[in-house]
Every structure is written in C-alpha cells, then in structure tokens.
Design a protein around this nucleic acid. Structure first.
Lengths: 191, 191, 191, 191
DNA sequence: GATGAATGAGCGTTCATTCAT
DNA sequence: CATGAATGAACGCTCATTCAT
C-alpha cells in the first residue's frame, strides 16, 4: 500500500467510525483495525486523535466547498445562486451520508464549536461564498434585513435537519421534495 | 434528604455536567459528587448511565411540553399558535441554556437518534401538540402541503440553530429579533 | 484487608520495585500485582505514579528522621553527635537495603533533584537537625569553615557510597569498619 | 559523512539526551534525529539501546582516564598525586556537565551497577591508576589502613557530591573551594 | 436503602526494533 | 550500508459498575 493510500485509509476509517458511533465510540484501536494498519501507524500520520479528527474534517470541508463551488452560477440572481448552493449541499450530503453524519458529530463536539467560533471571528475559510451571497442578498434588498447569523440559521437549519431526517429514513428526499424544500427556505429569507 | 429529592438531585447533576462537558465528560463519579450522594447510590435509582441520561431527557421533555402548552391559544388561528409555540421554545431555551445544551448533546448521541426514531414510528410523546398544529395548518391550507417532517425541519431547524448561536454568543436574541425570526419561519412554511 | 493496610501494601510494592528496577522498571501494573490489588485501586490512594513515588519517599524520610533523632545526644559535643547521626544512618540503610536503593533511585530522578532544591531553598524538612549540627560545628570552630553544602558532601558522600558498596557486596561493613569510616569522615570535616 | 563520524555523532547525541532527560527520556528516535541519521541507522552501529548506552559510557570512561592520566605526576608523593587526580576529575566534570550528568545516570541504572561489579571483580579497566595510588598510599602508611573500597568512598563520594551540587547550582566551586575541598578529602583518608 | 472502596477492561499514546527498499 | 515507515506490546490512567458493610 502506498503512503498516501494508508493516510487516506486511516481518514476513511475515522470518518466511518465517528459517523456511526461518535467521537468516543471510535477508539484509535478500532480506527487502526478498520484501516488495516497497526495501532502505532496512525501516529506516523497524525499527532493525536484530535488532529486526526480535525484533518478528517478539513478533508471533508474541502470536498464540500468544491461541490458547492462547481458550476456556481456567479452571474445569476441571488435567488438562483441560493437554490444552487442549497441543492448542491443537499445532494452532496444525501449521496454521502457517512460524511454528513461525521460533520454533524464534529459540529456538535468542542472542536466544532471552536471551529465555528474561529471562522465566525474572521479567520475565514471556504464559507466566504456563503457570506458573499447573503450579504449581496441583503444589500440588494431581495433578502430580509436580518443579521447574517439569522439568515444562515433560516437556510442551513432546515437543510441540515431535512438531510438528517432523510439519512435516518424519516423521509425520502426526491427531486421535487428537494426543490420544494429549498423554495420554502427561500420564502423564509426573501423579502 | 427525601427519596424524590435525591433522584432529582442526580438528574440535575447529570443535566448540568452533560450540558457543560458532554456525555463523555460527565463521569458517574462526578455526577454523584455534584448530586451529593455516593457513587453507588445512583444505581439505586437508575439501572445504568444510559438510563440516567434517558430519564434526564424525559424530565426535560416534560418541562418543555409544559412550557409550550401553558397559555397555548388553542382556539386561535394556526399562525398565532405557531408563533406562540416558537416563542415559548426560544424563550425557554434562552432562559435555560443548560437544558438546551443537554438536549443538543442528547439529540446528537446514538440515544437521541434512537429516541427520535421511536417517537416517529408511532410511540408518541409530548410532540402531539406540534403534530396537531401542523396537520391542521396543512388541512386548512394555510401551510404548504409538505410532509410533516419537512415542515418540522423548516420550523425547528432555524429555531434550534438560532438559539445555539445565541448561547454561543454569535448573536443576541432580543425581543424584536425573536419575533422577526419567527415571522421568517412562518414565511417559510405558510402557503 | 484494611484500608490502611492496602495503602501500605501499595507503598511497599512501589518501594521494592523501584528499588530493584528503578522508576521506569516499576510499572503501575506490576506495583498493583505485587500489592495484591487491582490496577485501578492504586488510584484510590494516589493521584498518579509521581505522587505514589513521592509519598513513598516521604514515608521513608519520616522513618529516617525518626531513626536519626532517636537517642540523639543533643547535649553532647558536636563530634559525638556527628558520629551518632552517621552511625544511625549507616545502620538504618544497611538494615533496610531496599529502602536505601529506593532513596538512591529517588535522589537521582528529576523528583529528587527538585526535592533537594526545594529543601535547600528554605522549605526545610527533617534535615534541620543536620543543618543545626553543622552550623554549630562551624561556629564552634570544631569544623572547617566551609560552606554547608561542602560539609554535607564530605559527610554524606562517603556514607552513602560506603553503604552502596556494602549493599552491592563489595565490602562488608562490620562494627569496626563502620566506626573507622565515620572517624575518617570526621577527620575530613574537623578543623 | 564518514562511518566513524556517524558513529561518533550517535554517541554524542545519546550522551546529551541521556544527560538532559535521563535514560528513559532519550528515545532512539530522538537520538537518531539529533545525530542526523535515520532511525534504523543506529542499529548498524549498535545492537540495541543498551549497547549504545554502554558504549557511550565506555567512550566517556576513556576520556576521563585520559584526563586524569595527563600530566599525572607519577614520581611525586602520594598526597600530591591524589590532589592532582581529584582536581583533574573535578575540573573535567565541571567543564563537561553533560558528561557528568550522563555518568550519574549511568551509575544509577541497572547497567551501572553491573558494570561496577564487573570491574570490581577483576576485569579491570582504566581505574588501575586509582587502585595503584591508594594501594601505595596504604603501604607507605600515609593513608589510613582501610579497605580500598572505603578509601575510594571517602575520596570520590565527596568529589562527586560536590560536583553535583555545583552542576545543580547549590554551590559555586571556584579555585580555592576546589582545593580546600580536596584538602578536606585528603584529611579524611590520610593517616 | 445507602455507601464508597474496589474492580478491571479499555482508552490514547510511546518507542525499541524490524525490514523492504 | 542506510533508510524511515511500520509495527505492536506495554505504558499510565479512567470510569461504569459492583458488593460487602
């Protein structure tokens, strides 16, 4: 196995175990077993468990930014861009339920809170696209004049909840349901 | 100390510790210490840690139902009832950040998922009032004709997100912001 | 087994294992096994390994002070008192080779150095009797006018070395050899 | 890099790390890093960690013998030779605190004890010069008629202790203090 | 019922050593 | 010879749970 492959296998294993059982239900011994490496090998690639989880998160974040950015209609109206972003997110999450569950676990851990705070406090990351979109929406007066945080909540709150319900089998998000849900979100934030 | 008091003290201690440090940051020994009882005593009242956490959750659920039900304007229009429920929830959570944090921890644990599944699959609980409200909203054609799960997501997704942001200090929810947020939620679900 | 007995058994086990194999050759698992308790039990009595070792040291220090103090001829000339102290030390160490080895290990560990520094810097302990003796010796002009540290080295350096040689079997310290060695030490420090 | 250079670099690295952090604070990986070689390379030169430490000790022993032997006034009286040896040792140790700390660590490890035993039991090493000096001192009746081991203890016990105190900063050994200390040692062993 | 000392499986992590390159 | 990624046994320590009192 190549070096990069091994690193990747460890991240995959961590991803899956954390997604299924949470941070504390994913002992390093289990991660190493699932990745097919020895216990100590993980520490050749990651300083400690926290770092492993953070880097797994970073890896996912990259993929999501990629997903959302791809074919982003930067020159279309705000509404259309919003719907694009929402749909990209929902489709990505639905297609990668493990990733989705991992992200939920991460966001709900101390790391996640800290991470959000950092990002919020200015150290931007891939979220700039969201910020720009909403700021433009407000300044063009097509969105309600609410704090960004509230607009985010009105948009991503339902999206994440809806995806969770889908992943848990409480609803099946087909194409029409996805678009109707996103339209409803738009109704929530639009003027 | 009375028997009921002791039981209650244990639940309070569990609540606070889980809220502050998460499930795995709340060892039984710490719970017993905070509750002012011996380590073994907890097991006189609860079979094991899982049960303790579940019952703590049940206790909170009861209080929330109480909160939402109190002064519930059952004879007023759907919109008004929705706003009442939403405001009751937000105010309760904001006034009881510990409870809110506990609930978030619980919902994001394996227990939480299982719990939601049980409730969804028919074993109702205190959520009937929500269900009734939304079913009526749909049948009266004042709400969008979407699955209940989606309407829940459009309503409680933003509410919980917004409260979390408040608790973490990313925004301050004053009276006007609360009502404007709830109006926006209503825009999302109304026809 | 009584509570105090268990604590004592753990200290004995730590003492023996550290004496024989050094700090790092005395894993907690071995200590617990030797003490006849479970691994976790040690932590009911001591915060961590460091504390266990420190308290073991403290226990020994107490016994030594006791030994040296007992029948200490406080009203006799400095020389006589010096010989009493030296002989008490040598006899104690020879009679308790395990204790002696432990002390050597301790003194040579980071803890030991720190401990000496603390004591030296003013936080006195049981060594006051030594300090008094030597200060009086200097002021009465029966000892050389050298810094206390040097006088200590001239006295305890040989004593500890000689005991070590005895314990390792390089020499057998009988009564005459003990007293002749102490006389030689006295020759080293006396005016 | 030459083969001999590499070997030497490894020994230097081991020496420094053991001196600073003790045997167990000097992992092979750290030694290799400090020496500027790969982890596995050490095993081209030394069978295992124990061997590395032993050979590091041997290297130091050689340097010390060299130091003590240089300008050794073999034709001068015993007293003078003793003072030369003592001063050479003290000056060497003080000038090479790392070496001194390593030696202390070594002497206090299981290896050290075994090493002393071997040497004592006949497999002589560089200590012959000491042995000769003291044997001559005794036979000329300028030294006390005590076993060699005791005379060694009376000489080197204080010397090592005094140097340790200097290295730890408890005293500063200037020229006069060195010579006065050595005179005191001589008082201890002389007739 | 209540206690809390005791348990021991399991955790995250380290590091001497190996071996394919 | 030299490399350094990989190994896995062993470490110190935690904590849910038990049970004699």
């Amino acid at each position: 196995m190549e070096k990069a492959d091994k690193r990747c296998a460890i991240i995959r294993a961590a991803l899956e175990l954390v997604a299924e059982h949470g941070f504390h239900g994913a002992p390093m011994s289990m991660v190493s077993e699932k990745a097919g490496v020895a216990a100590g090998t993980i520490y050749c690639y990651f300083d400690n468990k926290e770092t492993l989880i953070r880097e797994t998160y970073g890896y996912l974040e990259g993929r999501i930014v990629e997903t959302v950015t791809k074919r982003y209609p930067g020159d279309r109206p705000v509404r259309e861009r919003f719907l694009h972003v929402g749909e990209a997110l929902i489709r990505y999450y639905i297609g990668s339920p493990l990733e989705f569950r991992f992200l939920e676990q991460f966001h709900n851990s101390p790391f996640g809170v800290e991470h959000r705070r950092d990002k919020f406090m200015g150290k931007r990351g891939g979220c700039d696209i969201f910020r720009e979109l909403f700021e433009e929406g407000v300044s063009q007066q097509v969105m309600k004049d609410l704090p960004l945080v509230i607009l985010f909540a009105l948009s991503f709150g339902p999206i994440l909840t809806v995806v969770r319900d889908h992943v848990l089998g409480f609803v099946i998000l087909d194409n029409t349901l996805i678009s109707r849900t996103l339209e409803a979100c738009w109704d929530g934030i639009r003027r």
